[in-house]
Design a binder for these strands. Sequence first.
RNA 1: GGACCCGUGGUGUAGCGGCCCAACAUGCCAGCCUGUCACGCUGGAGAUCGCCGGUUCGAAUCCGGUCGGGUCCGCCA
Length: 651
Amino acid sequence: MTDSSPPDRGATDAPAADSAADVADVADLLATPYRTHTCGVLRAADSGTIVRVSGWVHRRRDHGQLIFLDLRDRYGITQVVIDRTGQPDAHAAASRVRSEFVVTVEGEVAARVPGTENPRLPTGAIELRATAVTVLSEAKTPPFYINDPDATIDEALRLRYRYLDIRREAMARRLLLRSRLVQAIREVHHAHGFVEVETPNLIKSTPEGARDFIVPSRLQPGSVYALPQSPQQLKQLLMVAGIDRYFQIARCFRDEDLRGDRQPEFTQLDLEMSFVDEDAVMAFVEKMVIEVCRVTTPDRPFQETPFPRFTFDEAMDRFGSDKPDLRFGMELVDLGPRLVDAAEVPSSGFRVFDETLAAGGRVKAIVAPGMAGATRKEIDELTERAKRFGAKGLAYLGLAEGGEIRSPIAKFLGDELTRGLIDATGAAEGDLILIVADTPAVTADVLGRLRVELGGRLGLADPDVLAFCWVNRFPMYQWDAENERWDATHNPFSGVLPEDEELLTTLDGDPAKPSPQDPAGRARALQYDIALNGWELGGGSIRIHRRDLLARSFTLQGQTEAGMKEKFGAVLEAFEYGPPPHGGIALGIDRWAALLSHQSNIREVMAFPKTQSGGDLMLDAPSTPEEGQLAELGLSFVGVRGRATPPPPAE
RNA sequence: GGACCCGUGGUGUAGCGGCCCAACAUGCCAGCCUGUCACGCUGGAGAUCGCCGGUUCGAAUCCGGUCGGGUCCGCCA
């Protein structure tokens, strides 16, 4: 019966959808000896009701005869008044209460004395006139302010006492938003016939490029499990199994260095569909994403629907990124055509540009609006940044008010060409043109990063807008010079564009010898990424399910038949039993939740995240294993500073 | 693996070679206060300046190392 009842969409249209007080009605299971109501629900209409509430003491204001307690739970704050003359016992109890004590208060809901209402609290029209105050738990003075939303607190301290940090409204609200996000995801998938399947965390290493976390086996000493970097192979096996439409909120593990948007364990929305093409997957995901965002953050507008689509080449060309932030313009402008003469010979007069173009490179620019007045120091900083991103230098043209041009390269280019370049960029008075000359890849990358940097610094991106886009037609492979082979740019099972199938071959026909001249370098993958506000939110592909194509693709990746069997044995074998055409995608839940919460760091939407060095400051993990644990596994530490342990006995 | 930033009472900051056994705010403790809601008033306790070493007549302040946290590059989808 309850299974068929419609999902509660109360959150969708509730005005306070973004507040910690926003939750489904829990009154039905609330009645316990501790409380009849939460601290967030009482209103003027409840006046006269006898209630009991429990919560943490948010603040105490002691006026002698009269004590005010702000009582807090995750639903809100209710003011309690204790009058000594009427309630001497309650008053005595309230006198010894301190911040963060847990108390139960019994009393009558009353409209506040006129003129003393607090419009900043949803419960500000009423107060609870206490007849009894019971202390359930005492609390030490907390290590930081829980009741001050503006307090800046050292993050290490927050992580050490995360359970106190989560008591703070902002943190609780973010976890709540994340919960709603995941709930919405589940609802949409179930509504579209997806089956939620759990896959194991103790699996075999699935080479996806990242380092595996390894778990030693006790029952099979000398062997290890790997924690999944993603359920990639398992979900493909589910397709062979006929599960048609699969999804999972999956925990994934990657042992790589951390960043603001990367944790060693993180959560993916993993999904896979059978009998689909690229458009079918993208269509579903787009529909799902829109619906989920509408439910989770109804007040965040979409910049554009349907989501714009770019090929990889176009995205790199226009934005210098395969995850462009579309909330502002500042697109890259190719200056090349202006820098060559009628015979297409580079002839700008500025040697760096000419040589770059002659060598097949690119000269491109972005326009930083209003930055013509940048100081020498600011420009040096930008140059420094550009160099760190891989550029050899940064040329610029500043268009000062009044038409004066400020540029170290103008004298080489001459007046006419300088005007021509300004024209090409569309820059206006007061703007600063930044120019990079390098290989196509470096030019795009450096300008792309500068674009994001400056867009942020100049406040060009509306923080509320959700600018989704798709990027597809990625190159199938990247040449790995070190290992003399083609690396799949994403998933090794990613399919190839049908018209590029014939390119999947080695030049000299020697399958054992990939070379950088191979036409495969031009092959494009059936690969699609979804980006949101400049973050890569997810990526997926249509997989290769045909044995022959798979073999050719793997050969280009430098895999031998034996190597393939070792790494992908289960999938390859399964593919001999009727694999359906299939494809899917994985979306980063942490990133999604962070972006919906206006956060630039996924730690802010994780209950118990790890530090940059992979530590848990609260649990003090990782830690030295206990005596015997290693021996039982047949392991010993070797050559670890201060951690060497005696080797296990030979047998 | 690398670059940079930060580390001072419970918390957030100031001080950046002697004026500092360290200042301010807040929190904490005590007393007073019947309408506050960052309550108010009065008084009080609380840090040898992450740790180790060096330079110096003298170090919170300079230098080196180390530990912890963060940002970024490499790495990583």
